[in-house]
């Protein structure tokens, strides 16, 4: 009889003997993986969305007066002193008026009674991609507002701030659910294995006496944890995928998901989550064996 045949038979026996607690553990592992992966999926998508948002981010510096060529050069020099930027564009009053009129489209006749220079001149500053964090953008904005002749600096601060805090909150939730995942997988698996060990105390004692090696006794328990990890995490990820597909189907159309591109994990990320869960479950069963299975 081969080693692995015997080991798998033992695993089957263990599972049959404690199937109720095994099922509970499996559900807990699946649920933990589902909760963690759910928040991580939202977080990952938000990050992608944030990156896109960062790509479109520009700071508008409203000026008191239209700068001449020399002042433009001076301002450009001042701006680039803070940090290199991707693009600096000076917009004159006339240009601003035309742009505004274009934006109004059919309603542009509301501008008929307005003077063509009622809009302030401005500088459109597109920061470099690495200037992404809110604090950096804020610092840059503060620096720009201190430039001589600046009226106001705008970069959709409220919106960016809200988005920033939302992703920060999400990162905390991801951390918490990650901790939950670690705790549940390790402790639940450890607890189940412990139950199995206690339930089979007499048999394990006998196995030792008839000459079973450490590997013969321990490997089934290690495999049990491994199986809990494989099945539990796979069920968790598959459930999340089903949920994702359902949401996509249910809420497809001109709202919600179409606001930004919402995508599922890449196969690499999915496999990484599964592998980490397997590792955690195996650690759980190993720690119990070290504690309760002294051979």
């Amino acid at each position: 009889m081969s080693f692995w045949f015997t080991v798998f038979r033992q695993v089957g026996r263990n599972i049959r003997q404690t199937w109720a607690s095994q099922l509970m553990t499996l559900l807990t592992v699946s649920l933990s993986v589902l909760i963690f992966a759910f928040f991580y999926l939202i977080y990952a998508n938000m990050l992608t969305f944030g990156e896109k948002l960062g790509d479109d981010l520009s700071l508008i510096v409203y000026l008191e007066e239209e700068p001449g060529p020399e002042l433009q050069q001076q301002l450009t020099k001042k701006i680039t002193t803070f940090d290199e930027v991707e693009k600096i564009r000076f917009i004159s009053r006339a240009e601003a008026y035309q742009r505004f009129a274009r934006q109004l489209g059919q309603n542009q006749d509301v501008l008929n009674d307005m003077p063509k220079d009622f809009l302030p001149p401005s500088i459109e500053v597109v920061p470099l991609k690495n200037l992404r964090s809110l604090n950096q953008v804020k610092l840059f904005s503060a620096y720009l507002s201190r430039l001589p002749g600046t009226l106001k600096v705008q970069f959709g601060q409220d919106w960016v701030e809200r988005f920033y805090y939302f992703t920060k909150l999400l990162s905390i939730i991801v951390l918490l659910s990650g901790t939950l995942l670690i705790l549940t997988t390790i402790f639940m698996v450890a607890y189940t294995i412990r139950l199995t060990i206690l339930g089979r105390q007499a048999e394990l004692e006998l196995l030792k006496l008839v000459g079973a090696t450490n590997n013969y006794i321990r490997t089934p328990f290690l495999l049990e944890g491994l199986l809990q990890g494989i099945i539990g995490s796979s069920v968790g990820i598959i459930s999340l995928y089903a949920l994702y597909e359902w949401i996509k189907l249910r809420f497809s159309g001109p709202v919600f998901l179409n606001l930004f591109e919402f995508s599922f994990f890449s196969p690499v990320v999915s496999i990484t989550i599964i592998c980490v869960s397997i590792l955690l479950c195996t650690v759980g069963s190993y720690s119990t064996m070290q504690k309760f299975l002294r051979i």
């Binding site: 081969s2 080693f3 000459g211 013969y216």
Partner: peptide, 27 residues
């Protein structure tokens, strides 16, 4: 005795051979 009271007679006897990885048909 140290028998496993929830197992069959055959399973109890076989246990000492299983740990030495004897073939199932021999057991």
């Amino acid at each position: 005795f140290k028998l496993l009271n929830d197992r069959t007679t055959a399973e109890n006897v076989a246990i000492s051979m299983e740990v030495s990885y004897k073939k199932p048909q021999i057991i």
